Computed example of a mutant assay.
Amino acid sequence: MNELKQIVGGAIVDSLERPRMLLAARRTAPEAFAGMWEFPGGKVEPGEGLEEALHRELAEELGVEVRLGAEVEGTTAAGWPLNTAAAMRVWLAEVTVGEPAPLEDHDELRWLPLDGRAGLLGLPWIPADFPIVHAVLAATAARSAAD
């Protein structure tokens, strides 16, 4: 059996302590996913740590530095299955330097309220990311309830 390709993604929120908004990114490619929304991130390079890869990917794709929060636990040991060949690990993240901009792979970014489920869930998410959206909503709701 081949090892799964490891992907990392950032569920970027306006505040790790009091998350109210989530940043969604609209893909431009590949054609099958163009126009669909996702969590920004990408492939882990050989010899690179997961969190290191996420910092690199978010800098490349959005031009930002972030502080990572808790991991949004996936449904398998490798994270969230994307397809038969890849799985994604996702962390909550907060921008610490820069303003997110669609530099690579995206043509639009949108901040969406976490309490406005219809707006967030109404976007055409990449199908593999949709269960992660629900998990992020649960994780941020639990964080807000703990306040």
Rank of each mutant, 00 (worst) to 15 (best):
N2C: 08
E3V: 12
L4N: 03
K5M: 12
Q6N: 09
A11D: 05
A11M: 01
I12S: 06
V13A: 10
S15E: 07
L16T: 06
R18N: 13
R18H: 14
M21L: 14
L22R: 03
L22F: 06
L22S: 02
L22D: 02
L23F: 01
A25Y: 07
R26V: 00
R27Y: 11
R27P: 03
T28R: 15
P30W: 01
P30Q: 06
E31F: 09
E31C: 07
A32W: 00
A32I: 08
F33M: 10
A34C: 12
G35Y: 06
G35E: 10
M36Y: 07
M36V: 04
W37H: 05
W37Y: 11
E38Q: 07
E38D: 13
E38W: 03
E38R: 12
P40M: 05
G42T: 08
G47Q: 02
E48C: 10
G49R: 12
L50H: 13
L50V: 02
E52S: 14
E52T: 15
L54I: 07
R56E: 11
E57V: 01
E57G: 06
A59R: 15
E60H: 14
G63L: 03
E65Q: 13
G69L: 02
G69F: 09
G69N: 08
V72E: 06
E73V: 15
G74W: 01
T75Q: 10
T76L: 02
A77N: 01
A78I: 03
W80T: 09
P81G: 10
P81V: 05
N83R: 12
T84P: 14
A87Q: 04
M88K: 15
V90H: 02
V90W: 04
W91Y: 07
A93K: 01
E94D: 03
V95A: 03
T96I: 14
V97T: 11
G98A: 11
E99Q: 11
E99A: 09
P100F: 00
A101F: 01
P102D: 08
P102L: 08
P102N: 10
L103W: 04
D105I: 01
D107H: 11
E108D: 10
R110C: 12
R110L: 15
D115R: 14
D115K: 11
G119D: 13
G119T: 07
L120N: 05
L120W: 02
L121C: 13
P124M: 02
W125Q: 01
W125I: 10
W125H: 09
I126Q: 14
P127Q: 09
P131H: 08
P131Q: 09
I132S: 06
V133E: 01
A138M: 09
A139G: 01
T140I: 08
T140S: 09
A141E: 14
R143E: 12
S144G: 06
A146E: 15
A146R: 14
